[in-house]
């Protein structure tokens, strides 16, 4: 199971670009807010500005499906980031049915996921933000960000994200969070790798309150009256 705060997106750029002769370098980014406080759980992704690299990405090997679980009537993780063209697996760990639906975004779906480890695979072949809900448990909310690049990650509790062995080119760096109060919930800037030291990026935008995925009712045997 993927825990939200512990998500590690291993980047496999090293496999993709074996011809690059440069030593394996890690590029570290730190995302802070206007009060210099580290921002955790922010999606960070790098898109090469050079078209040639974009073409090469299409030849990426198949990745294991990314999973989003329904656990204790919550989407876990709250934010999932994945590359366009790959498969997302929905897994219901609860002993009740969930009725998952997409509320917005390029991929629209709805299905009932029965109790006890029922699964459903969906391929996301268009980049964009998909916000999800459960039609039975309205407090549940989850987000999928589908990106058109293999270079993505999520900041840890220290606001840090690491990209290993990525091509040394110029990128557009996007920082995204569903509650980030900017245009398209995104903050962008241009960066060029390799980085000699951690690049600190200050996001001068406010964050909306992250919704608690919790019902007011704490009794388990409710009938939905």
């Amino acid at each position: 199971m993927i825990k939200h705060s512990k998500v590690k997106y291993r980047l496999i750029a090293g496999i993709v670009f074996p011809l690059l002769s440069s030593p394996v370098l890690s590029n570290n980014f730190m995302v802070i807010d206007s009060n210099n406080t580290p921002m955790a759980n922010m999606v960070v992704y790098l898109t090469p500005t050079n078209e040639e690299y974009k073409q090469q990405q299409l030849k990426m090997p198949v990745k294991k499906p990314v999973e989003v679980h329904q656990e204790n009537k919550q989407f876990s993780p709250y934010i999932t980031v994945m590359q366009k063209g790959y498969q997302l697996k929905f897994v219901n760990d609860d002993d009740i049915t969930h009725h998952i639906y997409s509320a917005s975004g390029p991929k629209r779906f709805s299905f009932k996921l029965r109790k006890d480890s029922s699964q459903k695979d969906l391929v996301f072949d268009q980049a964009g933000h998909i916000s999800m809900g459960c039609n039975i448990h309205d407090w549940m909310s989850g987000h999928v960000l589908v990106v058109d690049t293999p270079f993505f990650g999520v900041t840890n509790n220290l606001g840090m994200v690491e990209f290993n062995s990525i091509p040394e080119v110029q990128y557009r760096l996007d920082i995204w969070h569903p509650q980030l109060q900017t245009n398209n919930n995104t903050y962008s800037q241009t960066v060029t790798t390799p980085l000699l030291e951690t690049l600190t990026i200050q996001v001068n935008a406010s964050m909306d309150e992250i919704p608690t995925q919790q019902s007011l009712d704490d009794f388990e045997f409710l009938e939905g009256y």
Partner: peptide, 28 residues
């Protein structure tokens, strides 16, 4: 399912209680 504007329709048909009680929310 909710529409894109957030509107959702529910319907109930049969032998039922009027939806009033805030206490009687559990099984049976």
């Amino acid at each position: 399912l909710p529409l894109d504007n957030g509107l959702r329709l529910h319907a109930k048909l049969g032998l039922m209680y009027p939806s009033i009680s805030l206490e009687n929310i559990a099984t049976a």
